[in-house]
Each structure stands twice: as structure tokens, then as C-alpha cells.
Amino acid sequence: MQPAPDPFVQADTHDLVLRAEPASVRAALLAVTAVSPVADLSPDLRGTVELVLAEVLNNVAEHAYADSAGHVAVTVALQPGVLWCEVVDEGAPMPGSTLPEGRLPKDDLPEGGFGWHLIRTMTRDLQYRRQRGTNRLTFIIPLQE
């Protein structure tokens, strides 16, 4: 898979491609948070970025590649006041080609269904496009504390 074209040539960017499975996701999160631009953020914001990327990448591993193995590409770029993020994979499309609403589960002791709620709470401008067999998710994480 080609890395996504970088629309922010001037920006401080970091990208990597990883296998979409839990151990590789963990390694990728450690890698992304250890270098610029994410490493330069406050510990609290680094935690937010790591959590959002964890939820997005684990969703790709668990759902898009539920029946197959594959790779996923992540790009993070520092822009004024926000971190711009893009996640691209070649797995199955989102059901109905739309993003889940991310409502919190209604049961008393839910064991799942938290992921999209966390993603939607911590991001802005969340956009999903399915094109020529690829899923492309973009969003920004505000950097004001």
C-alpha cells in the first residue's frame, strides 16, 4: 500500500504502516508516541492521541480485517492547534458505509461498545470514505487543554 499523499508538506508529520493485529498495534502506538510530533505534546495530550489511535487501529484489526490479514497506514501531522490524523486500510468497508454513532451501550455492565464513543468524544471533523477498495478515515484531535 502506498502511504497517503501528504497534504501538509510544511507540517511536522509522521507516518507508518503496520500489520493490523493487536501486538503490532501496540508496537505502532509506542512508536508514534515516542517521536515528533506526538512526543512533543503534553503527557495528557499524548495519552489522548494514543487512546484515539488505539481505538481506530484495533477497530481496523478486529472488523475491517475480521476475515483476513492486512496492513493499515497511519499518518499524523501537526497543524496549528490540532493534530491531523489519517488511517487507511484495504479491509472490508464499514457496515452501511457509514461510521457508527458511538452511543454508549445501555446495559448495566457493558463489556464492549465503548470504542466509537471514545473516538467521537476526543476527535473533531471525523470523515470516512470508501474508495477503490480502501477505507480512509480522517479526523483531528484538538490540542487545547
Binding site: 502506538l29 494514543e50 487512546l51 457493558p110 463489556e111 464492549g112 465503548f114
Partner: peptide, 16 residues
């Protein structure tokens, strides 16, 4: 230092 939604789900499952 880090807990994701899978980890949270596991803690809730233990409570249950």
C-alpha cells in the same frame, strides 16, 4: 499507564 476499550471491557467482565 494505558487502558483501551478492550482493557476496560475486560475489567467490566471481571466485575460481572
Amino acid at each position: 499507564q494505558f487502558l483501551d476499550s478492550s482493557g476496560l471491557g475486560a475489567i467490566v467482565a471481571v466485575k460481572k
